[in-house]
């Protein structure tokens, strides 16, 4: 070990946490994140690794063979699903376990993952339309309902992007998007496009409603990550209530 071993080990733990944090943000499951951090720390020579992860925080304590114990924590603020980043982080952690690269190398690889390309705004708009239209028809709407839902989906993407940049609260962003969706559905019906308002709304709701979160929450609970499960479950219920309220505002 070099003379600044402590720097290296602490730096390494920071890197391990960076990987875990990015994984959690990108949509990695709690047990996957814990497993990855443990493996990466063990690769750095740790004798004992204790990781505790809930959706909003990670705590890692790393015990070295020479008796040194280091702890670092990380607060996770918001989630944004990014499967490509998750895949690359997974590859990175495997690479670390196999070749045990230097901290600087891991840092530069993490930087590369951070700047991975996202789909262009145009593509995302088209996909919002595709998902809205598909879901409206999936739940039993006819072609016109699907079309109306797709058009509202496009507008919703613009509103959501704008609010993501300006609105300080995710919760209010969701509520405002829901109100907008409900109002637009009524407007489209008045204009004669679409027949079934519930189906048009359902198409747009699928874009906003945390259905995946609800399912994952229960999965975490069954698996034994009870706190994470309960936390996500409560969040999913609160957000979906807000969405239902938002879409219903126009009918009051």
């Amino acid at each position: 070990m070099s003379e600044n071993a402590q720097d290296t080990i602490e730096g390494f733990l920071t890197c391990a946490l960076d990987i875990g944090e990015r994984m959690l943000i990108s949509g990695g499951e709690v047990n996957r994140v814990e497993d990855t951090i443990t493996r990466v720390c063990k690769a750095a020579g740790a004798q004992r690794v204790d990781v505790y992860t809930i959706t909003s925080s990670i705590v890692v304590t790393m015990g070295m063979p020479d008796g040194q114990v280091i702890t670092q924590t990380r607060r996770i603020s918001r989630q944004k699903l990014d499967m490509n980043a998750l895949d690359r982080l997974n590859d990175l952690s495997r690479y670390i376990c196999q070749t045990k690269p230097s901290v600087a190398e891991v840092r530069s690889m993490l930087k590369q993952i951070e700047v991975l390309p996202q789909y262009s705004f145009g593509t995302q708009v088209v996909m919002y339309a595709l998902v809205s239209g598909s879901c409206a028809m999936f739940f039993g709407g006819n072609g016109w309902d699907g079309l109306a839902s797709a058009l509202i989906g496009v507008l919703l993407k613009f509103v959501q992007t704008f609010l993501n940049k300006t609105c300080p609260s995710d919760f209010f962003t969701i509520i405002l998007c829901s109100i907008f969706g409900g109002v637009m559905a009524h407007l489209f019906l008045r204009l004669g496009l679409g027949e079934n308002p519930a189906m048009i709304n359902l198409g747009n709701i699928m874009l906003l409603i945390p259905g995946i979160k609800l399912t994952n929450a229960i999965r975490d609970m069954i698996r034994g990550d009870t706190i994470t499960g309960v936390l996500c479950f409560a969040e999913a219920v609160i957000v979906s209530m807000a969405i239902a309220w938002g879409f219903a505002v126009i009918t009051f």
């Binding site: 999936f138 709701i205 409603i209 259905g211 995946i212 609800l214 999913a236 239902a244």
Partner: peptide
């Protein structure tokens, strides 16, 4: 899992609650 996810059912639940 998107087609299976009970997003529609979750929404219906909450809208019954709202009314």
């Amino acid at each position: 899992s998107i087609p299976l996810i009970p997003g529609g059912a979750l929404y219906r639940t909450m809208s019954y609650g709202i009314s």
